[in-house]
Design a protein around this nucleic acid. Sequence first.
RNA 1: UCCGGCGUGGCGCAAUGGUAGCGCAAUCGGCUGUUAACCGAUGGGUUACAGGUUCGAAUCCUGUCGCCGGAGCCA
Length: 483
Amino acid sequence: MELTPAGVGQVTYILPERCVQKKKRDKIKALLAGGIEKPDVLVQGWVRTRRDSKGGFSFIEINDGSCLANIQVIVDRKIPAETVRQLTAGCCVSARGNLTRSPGKEQALEVQAAEVTVHGTADPEHYPLQKKRHSFEFLREIAHLRPRTNTMGAVMRVRNRLAYSIHRFFNDRGFVYLNTPIITTSDCEGAGEMFQVTTLDLSSAPKANGEIDYAQDFFGQKAGLTVSGQLEGEVYALALSDIYTFGPTFRAENSNTSRHLAEFWMVEPEMAFYDLDDNMDLAEEFVKYLLADVLEHCAEDMEFFNSRIDNTVLSNLTHIAREKFERITYTDAIHQLRKANGNFVFPVEWGCNLQSEHERYLTETVYKRPVIVYNYPEEIKSFYMKLNEDHETVRAMDVLLPRLGEIIGGSQREENHDVLLQRIQAKGLKPEDYWWYLDLRRFGSAPHSGFGLGFERFVQFVTGMENIRDVIPFPRTPKSAKF
RNA sequence: UCCGGCGUGGCGCAAUGGUAGCGCAAUCGGCUGUUAACCGAUGGGUUACAGGUUCGAAUCCUGUCGCCGGAGCCA
């Protein structure tokens, strides 16, 4: 058997003959992007609509998910009648034939089917997706079929591009992709309630002194699903210099909003030798890079969002990719909000948490662009954030986006062992639970910083989708983990 | 978890105390290089669930479940 060489840069590998000779599927995206006639193409996908003519032919539109657009296939008398009858919305088919210019107005090219195979029928009496707009609430109830809609297809292609782009951004800058544990026994304090992980029988859990005896549990101690990979990320940043994590995160909060999930994906870079300014620079460049990339590479899908979901996304994203983010201290933010003269439900005082209404006012009314608020009061932030010289504020920063609010939260980390120990104790935490985290400050400590970006929130922002449950394949929220 | 709203044929909605109607979809027929196709006909609902008030409840009351919007928590 003759083998065909292929290559990755300078290094070649050998491709089995079968891979070369097999008739390959033509992706609809490639056929339409080519824009030219082509003999003998093979289109495979799911029928979106069918319009037929008793006079001898039917028009079917096939979508294979490679792009938003469908391809029109002409099915005439060459195709057996019983096959044509099966071509209803939702069925899965292969169609082989010539790609030719279309006399119709709505498309430049179409496939003249010489051969059609139905792989899976979809009984129109029972197939839930119709050729019309469905509410997102309804589509969530059929999460196994909703990826076959225009909107979910576009969301998932954009989501995929953003994920790819995140990896590229960090890899291009020499960051190491780190897989931090999903099951953990350390609680990243302040990040939210943890889901417990146990193999104990809940109806008859072993007890010691009236308490559940976790010594007998799988890990020999209480364990849960991670709420953040940050603490573990710091461990590797203090060895490899620059790392990032990108993985699932779990919060058992009873949050019922359009921007919270119990299971979501988070990107957490952690960098040695970065101070808070370096951290903010990276966060700003990161956001802009992702926006510019998705505008360039998902143009068709982004046009769709702009015309069907939110007619401001294109101009917003373009604007944000170009404009400088405003950076203000927490103290200045409080001054700005006080100038607004009490038009808030929640009063503004130095030391209070910024409420959604405050964040929106800053980003939508005062500056009309993304705002980074930094140097927050020590009391309202986590123990690991670096204490400023004023002893009142810490080097924390939040990136706020118009409409969406907080997209990134980060800080410079406290690298001084004694200060960190004091803060752990002051917050009522047990130093022994953080022994290895404290050890990082005993041995070769370094200034370092990092932040976390909520991936679904970012996808939400980019697409203009209103509900975070519609930008993740299978959303998990309180009282809802079907599929 | 709190506040507000909602739950009616497959889907989107109407009917606010008198026993359920429209559009789309589906099925059948007609017509057409069609394109949210069009025209005609047909079928389809114990109004989320449980209880109560009433001669009578989709409609009023109570409870449960679920969904949506806002808030809190956060990403």
